[in-house]
């Protein structure tokens, strides 16, 4: 430590040295502060998702445990991996989809967890909520309602522009259903057949959307006539008053899982949060607010019949949908994605 006296009457070299140390310290400050305060950092999707999480998960958690929480957005799978590599943690807890979860667990970038409720653990992720990719359309464009992905592919009967997510592992099962494969025969995926099916719709797909907000915007503004869209994003367009319709039929359900970043200094608090966030009442409130379906069965008693209509996991809707089977996928999602990227760019 440099004494105050010498700092006040410095020779030049020492002054520069001290100044350098001050600069370094102030640059490193966020990390130092971070290590001392033990604030829990949660990675969120931002927007309405974050508001719902704050109201129903984060604030009640802080109230119950006294643990301070801050949020970081948007969700970044790449950052999760990078954190473990560099040892610099921007967040302790995040959510992942099934495909990502399998990859993350293989790569060893998430902590081992225990099931907080029966059947709640898969590949070290705690199942939280589900969303569905559903078929939606502009009601000002089509008199008759499309019912299946085969109708989505049928451009003679339903002429107009289409949009799908630029995300291989979600599009491939849909392409197979459109080609007439039954849900029970879907997995493991027949990838070659799927690409043949995709070839038929390719030139009608005007937008391969990449962000949730973008999908709402193009449906609401009528940039496309029919779209494969996450159900929550669909309801946003509906709430905005756009002339749109949707069906739960052949909706593709995916689960979202809470995971804890490997070797985070906040491990205990992170585990506490995951347990809290997937417990019955908070999860029910969050799922309702963010337009998801809760995956903890105990949450159902906190969901009204009216709210259940908008959830892919409610019994009436669930029987029309199908679930992605990541354990029996039939191809490495990364390899599939690469083939899909090549296909979509050509």
């Amino acid at each position: 430590m440099t004494g105050i006296k010498t700092f006040l009457m410095p020779d030049r070299r020492r002054f520069l040295k001290t100044a350098g140390a001050v600069v370094t310290a102030s640059l490193a400050a966020p990390y130092i502060v971070r290590a001392q305060e033990k604030i829990l950092y949660i990675n969120t999707w931002g927007g309405p998702w974050e508001i719902a999480a704050k109201t129903h998960l984060i604030d009640p958690f802080t109230k119950e445990t006294g643990i301070q929480v801050k949020t970081v957005s948007p969700v970044s799978f790449a950052k999760l991996a990078q954190q473990v590599k560099t040892g610099t943690y921007e967040f302790d807890v995040t959510t992942l989809g099934g495909g990502e979860l399998v990859r993350a667990n293989q790569a060893g970038i998430i902590e081992q967890l225990k099931a907080p409720y029966e059947g709640g653990l898969f590949e070290n992720g705690v199942a939280s909520h589900a969303f569905a990719t559903v078929l939606a359309w502009r009601t000002d464009k089509y008199k008759e309602e499309p019912k299946t992905w085969a109708d989505f592919w049928n451009v003679e009967k339903f002429p107009g522009s289409r949009s799908l997510q630029r995300y291989a592992s979600r599009v491939i099962p849909i392409a197979l259903l459109a080609d007439g494969v039954a849900v029970k025969d879907l997995y493991p995926l027949d990838v070659d057949r799927a690409f043949k099916s995709l070839n038929k719709i390719k030139k009608h797909v005007r937008v391969w959307w990449t962000a949730g907000a973008q999908s709402t915007q193009i449906l609401r503004d009528g940039e496309v006539d029919m779209i494969g869209i996450w159900h929550g994003r669909y309801f946003e367009a509906e709430k905005a008053g756009a002339p749109v319709g949707m069906t739960w039929n052949q909706g593709e359900i995916e689960r979202a899982y809470w995971v804890v970043a490997k070797k985070t200094p906040n491990l205990e608090n992170a585990k506490k949060f995951v347990e809290f966030a997937t417990s019955a009442k908070p999860l029910a409130g969050f799922s309702k607010a963010a337009d998801y379906g809760a995956l903890n069965p105990a949450s159902n008693e906190f969901v009204s019949a009216d709210d259940a209509k908008r959830m892919p996991t409610s019994p009436a809707n669930y029987k029309l949908t199908f679930e992605q089977d990541m354990a029996n996928f039939g191809i490495d999602p990364a390899e599939l994605a690469e083939r899909f990227e090549e296909w979509v760019a050509s």
Binding site: F77, A78, A81, Q82, R103, Y167, A334, A337, E338, E341
Partner: peptide
């Protein structure tokens, strides 16, 4: 765009 996509989605650093 392709670089971003590779890193974000496939962790292909």
């Amino acid at each position: 765009g392709l670089i971003g996509h590779q890193i974000d989605e496939f962790l292909a650093f």
